[in-house]
């Protein structure tokens, strides 16, 4: 285990990051020289229209894609590929249907070499944290969508990452479940003190959870913008500050 300066834990620096794909013979510049500094323990939301590259950016940060140019530094050190400091929560829970809830949550730890009994112990702690106590021995197909997503979140937390990468984690849930889960995520982020990088297409979710919002755009003429959310926590959707920010963010997208 490398000794990490606690003040810098979970710090992400993105330098001149570019990535393009070739689609039907046409070059598509998805990421164009992105620079961003994310502090340790910060919650940042990435929003933008479909096809703006927000998911690609997250996949590069996760190490699932290699950038064409530029660097990703975590706690000051450049990273390539997948690493133990990061855990990803996907839009789908991506649970292994043949494992129970406990076994699924312990999966990440076991893969990283933790003995099974110890992994299961830690898994049970995080199952309680996400509010699934009593469902330890259930199989994924016995769970509702929201419960399954909680299992996915618990699995990511169990490996105790410095950085949590969330790719539209609540996008597939119904409106009611989504609201509850947003509050759960805010609580978990506060309790765990992780850096949270959240891709979402829900502006309200971005304002509810993030310290700053990165607004990405599809066309190359508009640069990416960073919006500071100076709102007290816990956040309340009905306060004038919240409403004003939502209006401002919607204006960014030409919505009124």
């Amino acid at each position: 285990m490398r000794v990490v300066d606690t003040a810098r834990r979970g710090e992400v620096t993105i330098r001149d990051l570019s990535k393009s794909f070739t689609l039907n013979g046409r070059r598509l510049d998805v990421l164009r020289g992105i620079d961003l500094d994310i502090h340790g323990g910060e919650a940042i939301a990435i929003v933008g229209p479909s096809g703006c590259g927000k998911t690609t950016l997250l996949r590069v940060l996760a190490g699932l894609e290699e950038p064409d140019r530029g660097d990703v530094l975590i706690d000051g050190a450049p990273v390539h590929g997948i690493g133990n400091q990061r855990a990803v929560i996907f839009q789908e829970p991506r649970l292994l249907p043949w494992l129970t809830v406990t076994q699924n949550v312990a999966f990440g730890l076991e893969v990283r070499g933790t003995p099974a009994a110890q992994a299961a112990d830690r898994a049970r702690h995080y199952i309680r944290l996400v509010g699934l106590a009593g469902f330890e021995e259930a199989f994924p197909r016995q769970l509702s969508g929201g419960m399954a997503q909680r299992v996915g979140i618990a699995r990511a937390l169990t490996v105790q990452p410095e950085i949590l990468l969330l790719d539209e984690p609540l996008g597939a849930l119904d409106a009611m479940t989504k609201l509850t889960m947003q509050e759960e995520l805010a609580r978990i982020w506060r309790e765990e003190g992780v850096t949270m990088i959240l891709v979402t297409h829900d502006l309200e979710e971005a304002i509810f959870l993030a310290d700053r919002v990165l607004v990405m755009s599809k066309d190359s003429t508009t640069p990416t913008r960073l919006i500071e959310l100076d709102l007290p926590r816990p956040r309340d959707r009905s306060t004038p500050g919240f409403v004003a920010l939502r209006r401002r963010l919607m204006a960014e997208f030409g919505l009124h």
Partner: peptide
């Protein structure tokens, strides 16, 4: 997507095979 999930936890090929591909 399940294979990708296992990979994000750093699972080597052998582990992905034994714990994801085989049971599936």
């Amino acid at each position: 997507k399940l294979i990708e999930m296992a990979r994000t936890y750093g699972a080597p090929r052998r582990t992905v095979f034994l714990r994801v591909v085989l049971p599936a």
